[in-house]
Protein backbone atom coordinates (compact mmCIF):
# COMPACT_ATOMS: atom_id res chain seq x y z
CA UNK A 1 0.00 0.00 0.00
CA UNK A 2 2.54 2.53 1.16
CA UNK A 3 4.86 0.99 -1.39
CA UNK A 4 2.40 1.77 -4.17
CA UNK A 5 1.78 5.24 -2.86
CA UNK A 6 5.47 5.99 -2.93
CA UNK A 7 5.70 4.71 -6.47
CA UNK A 8 2.81 6.94 -7.47
CA UNK A 9 4.49 9.93 -5.89
CA UNK A 10 7.71 9.15 -7.65
CA UNK A 11 6.11 8.89 -11.05
CA UNK A 12 4.31 12.16 -10.39
CA UNK A 13 7.60 13.75 -9.46
CA UNK A 14 9.26 12.29 -12.52
CA UNK A 15 6.47 13.53 -14.67
CA UNK A 16 6.85 16.98 -13.24
CA UNK A 17 10.57 16.85 -13.80
CA UNK A 18 10.06 15.72 -17.34
CA UNK A 19 7.61 18.49 -17.95
CA UNK A 20 9.96 21.01 -16.44
CA UNK A 21 12.78 19.67 -18.63
CA UNK A 22 10.57 19.84 -21.69
CA UNK A 23 9.54 23.37 -20.75
CA UNK A 24 13.18 24.30 -20.26
CA UNK A 25 14.10 22.79 -23.65
CA UNK A 26 11.27 24.64 -25.32
CA UNK A 27 12.25 27.95 -23.81
CA UNK A 28 15.89 27.35 -24.73
CA UNK A 29 14.87 26.63 -28.30
CA UNK A 30 12.84 29.82 -28.35
CA UNK A 31 15.76 31.82 -26.98
CA UNK A 32 18.00 30.36 -29.66
CA UNK A 33 15.52 31.33 -32.36
CA UNK A 34 15.22 34.84 -31.00
CA UNK A 35 19.01 35.21 -30.77
CA UNK A 36 19.49 33.93 -34.31
CA UNK A 37 16.87 36.40 -35.46
CA UNK A 38 18.67 39.19 -33.63
CA UNK A 39 21.96 38.18 -35.29
CA UNK A 40 20.42 38.21 -38.75
CA UNK A 41 18.76 41.54 -38.07
CA UNK A 42 22.00 43.11 -36.81
CA UNK A 43 23.91 41.86 -39.84
CA UNK A 44 21.23 43.03 -42.29
CA UNK A 45 20.92 46.44 -40.63
CA UNK A 46 24.70 46.83 -40.66
CA UNK A 47 24.80 46.16 -44.40
CA UNK A 48 22.03 48.66 -45.14
CA UNK A 49 23.55 51.28 -42.85
CA UNK A 50 26.89 50.69 -44.56
CA UNK A 51 25.46 51.38 -48.00
CA UNK A 52 23.69 54.52 -46.83
CA UNK A 53 26.55 55.93 -44.74
CA UNK A 54 29.31 55.19 -47.24
CA UNK A 55 27.19 56.54 -50.07
CA UNK A 56 26.89 59.77 -48.13
CA UNK A 57 30.58 59.87 -47.25
CA UNK A 58 31.91 59.09 -50.71
CA UNK A 59 32.81 61.96 -52.94
CA UNK A 60 30.77 62.43 -56.12
CA UNK A 61 32.05 61.10 -59.44
CA UNK A 62 31.28 64.47 -60.98
CA UNK A 63 33.30 67.04 -59.08
CA UNK A 64 31.64 70.14 -57.65
CA UNK A 65 34.57 72.31 -58.69
CA UNK A 66 37.53 71.74 -60.98
CA UNK A 67 40.78 73.61 -61.56
CA UNK A 68 40.74 76.44 -64.08
CA UNK A 69 40.81 75.18 -67.65
CA UNK A 70 40.22 71.51 -66.85
CA UNK A 71 38.60 69.73 -69.80
CA UNK A 72 36.72 66.57 -70.59
CA UNK A 73 33.10 65.58 -69.89
CA UNK A 74 33.50 66.03 -66.13
CA UNK A 75 36.41 68.45 -66.23
CA UNK A 76 38.74 65.79 -64.92
CA UNK A 77 41.59 66.39 -67.37
CA UNK A 78 44.37 68.97 -67.16
CA UNK A 79 45.39 70.06 -70.65
CA UNK A 80 48.96 71.15 -71.22
CA UNK A 81 50.43 72.53 -74.42
CA UNK A 82 48.97 74.02 -77.59
CA UNK A 83 45.31 72.94 -77.65
CA UNK A 84 45.17 72.84 -81.45
CA UNK A 85 48.24 70.64 -81.87
CA UNK A 86 47.53 67.66 -84.15
CA UNK A 87 48.45 64.95 -81.63
CA UNK A 88 47.43 64.37 -78.05
CA UNK A 89 49.45 62.55 -75.44
CA UNK A 90 47.17 61.29 -72.69
CA UNK A 91 49.03 60.62 -69.45
CA UNK A 92 47.71 58.89 -66.33
CA UNK A 93 50.13 59.54 -63.49
CA UNK A 94 50.18 59.17 -59.73
CA UNK A 95 52.46 61.67 -57.95
CA UNK A 96 53.90 58.82 -55.84
CA UNK A 97 54.36 56.30 -58.64
CA UNK A 98 58.07 55.57 -59.19
CA UNK A 99 57.63 54.48 -62.81
CA UNK A 100 55.87 57.80 -63.47
CA UNK A 101 58.83 59.61 -61.92
CA UNK A 102 61.23 57.65 -64.10
CA UNK A 103 59.13 58.41 -67.18
CA UNK A 104 58.98 62.11 -66.38
CA UNK A 105 62.69 62.39 -65.70
CA UNK A 106 63.48 60.67 -68.99
CA UNK A 107 60.83 62.28 -71.20
CA UNK A 108 59.80 65.68 -69.84
CA UNK A 109 62.42 67.61 -71.86
CA UNK A 110 61.31 65.85 -75.05
CA UNK A 111 57.63 66.36 -74.32
CA UNK A 112 58.16 70.04 -73.48
CA UNK A 113 60.02 70.45 -76.75
CA UNK A 114 57.31 68.69 -78.77
CA UNK A 115 54.70 70.93 -77.17
CA UNK A 116 56.72 74.04 -77.86
CA UNK A 117 57.00 72.99 -81.50
CA UNK A 118 53.22 72.73 -81.71
CA UNK A 119 53.35 69.00 -82.37
CA UNK A 120 51.52 67.69 -79.35
CA UNK A 121 49.51 68.64 -76.33
CA UNK A 122 49.07 66.62 -73.18
CA UNK A 123 46.00 65.51 -71.32
CA UNK A 124 46.92 64.75 -67.74
CA UNK A 125 44.86 62.52 -65.48
CA UNK A 126 46.22 63.00 -61.96
CA UNK A 127 45.34 59.70 -60.36
CA UNK A 128 45.97 58.91 -56.71
CA UNK A 129 45.67 55.23 -55.93
CA UNK A 130 49.04 54.53 -54.35
CA UNK A 131 47.78 56.00 -51.07
CA UNK A 132 45.32 53.12 -50.97
CA UNK A 133 47.86 50.33 -51.01
CA UNK A 134 50.75 51.99 -49.20
CA UNK A 135 48.80 54.28 -46.90
CA UNK A 136 49.40 57.99 -46.57
CA UNK A 137 48.15 61.05 -48.42
CA UNK A 138 50.97 61.92 -50.81
CA UNK A 139 49.17 60.91 -53.99
CA UNK A 140 46.03 62.82 -53.10
CA UNK A 141 47.71 65.93 -51.69
CA UNK A 142 50.24 65.96 -54.53
CA UNK A 143 47.42 65.82 -57.08
CA UNK A 144 45.61 68.61 -55.22
CA UNK A 145 48.75 70.78 -55.26
CA UNK A 146 49.10 70.15 -59.00
CA UNK A 147 45.49 71.29 -59.46
CA UNK A 148 46.33 74.41 -57.45
CA UNK A 149 49.32 75.02 -59.73
CA UNK A 150 46.99 74.65 -62.71
CA UNK A 151 44.84 77.44 -61.24
CA UNK A 152 47.98 79.57 -61.06
CA UNK A 153 48.89 78.76 -64.68
CA UNK A 154 52.05 76.97 -63.57
CA UNK A 155 51.02 73.35 -64.00
CA UNK A 156 53.81 72.27 -66.31
CA UNK A 157 56.66 73.72 -64.27
CA UNK A 158 55.35 72.49 -60.94
CA UNK A 159 54.63 69.07 -62.42
CA UNK A 160 58.26 68.83 -63.53
CA UNK A 161 59.52 70.00 -60.12
CA UNK A 162 57.39 67.47 -58.25
CA UNK A 163 58.61 64.52 -60.29
CA UNK A 164 62.23 65.68 -60.07
CA UNK A 165 61.86 65.70 -56.29
CA UNK A 166 59.76 62.58 -56.00
CA UNK A 167 60.42 60.63 -52.79
CA UNK A 168 60.67 56.86 -52.57
CA UNK A 169 57.33 55.22 -53.19
CA UNK A 170 57.12 54.10 -49.57
CA UNK A 171 57.97 57.55 -48.23
CA UNK A 172 54.97 59.82 -47.91
CA UNK A 173 56.86 63.12 -48.24
CA UNK A 174 54.17 64.50 -50.57
CA UNK A 175 51.70 63.82 -47.77
CA UNK A 176 52.97 67.02 -46.16
CA UNK A 177 51.58 70.28 -47.52
CA UNK A 178 54.66 72.05 -46.16
CA UNK A 179 56.85 69.95 -48.48
CA UNK A 180 54.56 70.63 -51.44
CA UNK A 181 54.65 74.37 -50.75
CA UNK A 182 58.40 74.46 -50.29
CA UNK A 183 58.81 72.69 -53.65
CA UNK A 184 56.55 75.33 -55.18
CA UNK A 185 59.21 77.92 -54.36
CA UNK A 186 61.27 76.41 -57.20
CA UNK A 187 58.63 77.65 -59.68
CA UNK A 188 58.90 81.44 -60.03
CA UNK A 189 55.65 83.15 -59.12
CA UNK A 190 53.82 80.03 -57.95
CA UNK A 191 54.16 80.36 -54.19
CA UNK A 192 51.44 82.92 -53.52
CA UNK A 193 48.99 83.12 -50.61
CA UNK A 194 46.26 81.90 -52.96
CA UNK A 195 48.31 78.84 -53.90
CA UNK A 196 49.23 78.11 -50.29
CA UNK A 197 45.65 78.34 -49.13
CA UNK A 198 44.56 76.12 -52.02
CA UNK A 199 47.15 73.52 -50.97
CA UNK A 200 46.54 73.79 -47.25
CA UNK A 201 42.76 73.60 -47.54
CA UNK A 202 43.04 70.61 -49.91
CA UNK A 203 40.72 72.64 -52.12
CA UNK A 204 40.43 70.08 -54.91
CA UNK A 205 40.12 66.92 -52.80
CA UNK A 206 36.71 66.22 -54.35
CA UNK A 207 38.07 66.70 -57.84
CA UNK A 208 41.07 64.47 -57.07
CA UNK A 209 38.73 61.73 -55.87
CA UNK A 210 36.57 62.10 -58.99
CA UNK A 211 39.65 61.76 -61.22
CA UNK A 212 40.64 58.59 -59.38
CA UNK A 213 37.11 57.13 -59.56
CA UNK A 214 37.15 57.80 -63.29
CA UNK A 215 40.43 55.91 -63.55
CA UNK A 216 38.96 53.09 -61.42
CA UNK A 217 36.23 52.63 -63.99
CA UNK A 218 38.60 52.79 -66.95
CA UNK A 219 40.24 49.70 -68.33
CA UNK A 220 43.68 50.96 -67.29
CA UNK A 221 45.19 49.31 -64.29
CA UNK A 222 48.58 50.87 -63.73
CA UNK A 223 50.50 54.10 -64.01
CA UNK A 224 51.99 55.53 -66.04
CA UNK A 225 49.45 54.77 -68.72
CA UNK A 226 50.40 56.80 -71.78
CA UNK A 227 48.33 57.04 -74.93
CA UNK A 228 49.30 58.70 -78.17
CA UNK A 229 46.08 59.70 -79.93
CA UNK A 230 44.32 56.99 -77.93
CA UNK A 231 46.83 54.19 -78.54
CA UNK A 232 48.84 52.88 -75.57
CA UNK A 233 52.56 53.55 -76.09
CA UNK A 234 53.96 52.71 -72.67
CA UNK A 235 56.08 50.68 -72.22
CA UNK A 236 55.74 49.71 -75.90
CA UNK A 237 53.90 50.75 -79.02
CA UNK A 238 53.46 47.48 -80.84
CA UNK A 239 56.92 45.94 -80.81
CA UNK A 240 58.79 49.19 -80.36
CA UNK A 241 59.97 50.25 -76.91
CA UNK A 242 59.20 53.81 -75.94
CA UNK A 243 62.20 56.15 -75.95
CA UNK A 244 62.53 59.91 -76.44
CA UNK A 245 63.65 59.32 -80.04
CA UNK A 246 60.81 56.91 -80.77
CA UNK A 247 58.29 59.26 -79.20
CA UNK A 248 59.38 62.04 -81.56
CA UNK A 249 59.28 59.59 -84.47
CA UNK A 250 55.79 58.32 -83.61
CA UNK A 251 54.40 61.81 -83.17
CA UNK A 252 55.94 63.03 -86.41
CA UNK A 253 54.45 60.05 -88.20
CA UNK A 254 51.01 60.71 -86.70
CA UNK A 255 51.22 64.40 -87.58
CA UNK A 256 52.15 63.89 -91.21
CA UNK A 257 50.24 66.26 -93.44
CA UNK A 258 48.54 68.03 -90.54
CA UNK A 259 49.10 71.67 -89.59
CA UNK A 260 51.01 72.19 -86.34
CA UNK A 261 49.43 73.86 -83.37
CA UNK A 262 49.90 77.50 -82.62
CA UNK A 263 52.69 78.07 -80.16
CA UNK A 264 52.30 81.45 -78.63
CA UNK A 265 54.70 82.89 -76.14
CA UNK A 266 52.70 81.13 -73.49
CA UNK A 267 53.24 77.46 -73.86
CA UNK A 268 52.42 77.19 -70.20
CA UNK A 269 49.11 75.86 -69.10
CA UNK A 270 46.30 76.54 -69.16
CA UNK A 271 46.18 76.30 -72.90
CA UNK A 272 44.93 79.64 -74.24
CA UNK A 273 41.69 78.42 -75.74
CA UNK A 274 40.72 76.27 -72.80
CA UNK A 275 40.30 79.02 -70.24
CA UNK A 276 36.71 79.46 -71.36
CA UNK A 277 33.91 78.18 -69.19
CA UNK A 278 34.84 74.60 -68.34
CA UNK A 279 31.34 73.32 -68.92
CA UNK A 280 32.18 70.18 -70.83
CA UNK A 281 30.16 70.96 -73.92
CA UNK A 282 32.52 73.79 -74.75
CA UNK A 283 35.61 71.64 -74.51
CA UNK A 284 38.15 73.62 -76.47
CA UNK A 285 39.53 70.88 -78.59
CA UNK A 286 37.48 68.34 -80.40
CA UNK A 287 40.39 65.95 -80.36
CA UNK A 288 40.49 65.89 -76.56
CA UNK A 289 40.08 62.38 -75.31
CA UNK A 290 36.88 61.89 -73.38
CA UNK A 291 38.33 60.72 -70.14
CA UNK A 292 37.27 57.14 -69.64
CA UNK A 293 36.53 56.18 -73.22
CA UNK A 294 39.73 56.08 -75.17
CA UNK A 295 39.38 55.03 -78.75
CA UNK A 296 41.00 51.61 -78.87
Amino acid sequence: MSEKNREGKRTARERMQEERAAEEARSRRNRKLVVSGVVLAVVAIAAVVGVVVQNQRSKPETPVSAPVGAIGPKNLVIPDGPANAPSVLTVYEDPRCPACGAFERQFSATVDQLQDQGKVYNNYHLVSFIDRSLGGKGSKLGANALACAQDAGKFRDYHDVLYKNQPDETSDAFGSNATLISLAKQVPGLDTPVFESCVNSNKYSGWVSAVQQDFDKSSYKSTPTILLNGTPIYPKKGDEEISPDNLVKWIDAANQGKPLGTTGAASASPAPSSTAAPSGSTAPSSTAQPSATPSP
Partner: peptide, 8 residues
Amino acid sequence: VGYALPFL
Protein backbone atom coordinates in the same frame (compact mmCIF):
# COMPACT_ATOMS: atom_id res chain seq x y z
CA VAL B 1 28.96 45.52 -51.90
CA GLY B 2 32.03 47.66 -51.31
CA TYR B 3 30.07 49.97 -49.03
CA ALA B 4 28.20 47.28 -47.09
CA LEU B 5 31.06 44.85 -46.55
CA PRO B 6 33.08 46.78 -43.95
CA PHE B 7 29.99 47.45 -41.87
CA LEU B 8 28.98 43.80 -42.13
